[in-house]
Design a protein around this nucleic acid. Sequence first.
DNA 1: TGTAATTCCTAGTAAATCTATAGGATTAAT
DNA 2: ATTAATCCTATAGATTTACTAGGAATTACA
Lengths: 137, 137
Amino acid sequence: MLSKKTKYGLKALTYIARSKGDLPVPVGEIAESENIPQKFLESILLTLRKSGVLGSKKGKHGGYYLRQEPTEIKMTDVMRVLEGPIAMVPCVSLNFYEKCDDCPDEEKCSVNKLMIQVRDNTLQVFRNTTLADLSGK
Amino acid sequence: MLSKKTKYGLKALTYIARSKGDLPVPVGEIAESENIPQKFLESILLTLRKSGVLGSKKGKHGGYYLRQEPTEIKMTDVMRVLEGPIAMVPCVSLNFYEKCDDCPDEEKCSVNKLMIQVRDNTLQVFRNTTLADLSGK
DNA sequence: TGTAATTCCTAGTAAATCTATAGGATTAAT
DNA sequence: ATTAATCCTATAGATTTACTAGGAATTACA
């Protein structure tokens, strides 16, 4: 299941991508428009900023803005920041690999084989989708 | 992330599919061989039985057995029993659909569109994979 | 210079979910 | 009878999720 954090994050990014003008977008505006608890959204946008997806400006007329064009912002990156590993098991994760403590031999593990397929298919979707696709730009 | 319940369940099913002979397979044997806590595995196999994937026989020489050929047991069914919805958001689930309480219009929701693609790709894998593929039979 | 509007940061908390464990009742083979 | 299994209910500890609280720091602008 997708966490609310990720869902809210994606909606907020979409909102920012669609917003007109050069002014950074304040959290309050996004929260109200997208029905997201403001304080929660604050913390989400903060992690997106720390990961380099968003930039921010403090103070009056401050807010958040995209650091790249929507066409350059890939879902693989966004999803990894918000949701964590794309793979369903760590032993199949490209960016967050971990060996299973049960499983003596990954090569022979039936779950491993199945989850590699799922990972590859999901990855294909996220690699071929950018924020521009989400926001219709 | 895949729950341990699902992971253990898949491993157990694979083990049963690979086991020779007509005798039902006792939980203790699977638990030991696959490094799964026995009591936990008991409850997992119980839900697989209640859902119709497994049959069981009580008492001495009892245990669990497949109710269909491995080639007939699809991952879509097994995953739905063990893990629940295949979709990452309820508003995109075929078998467990629920409207989002935030989102006023699904048609216009960027998350919705993206998750439909992920769902379809994942579904394709699970529909084309049976227990026979996992167990190498 | 002061005030309002914003991000930034740390901490905490209530609820849900996950991962089991406990203890026995029931059933069947020998 | 004894032994070896499944079946059933309850519960407990750990982790994660989804927030909330409170205020410090920064900036625009009157």
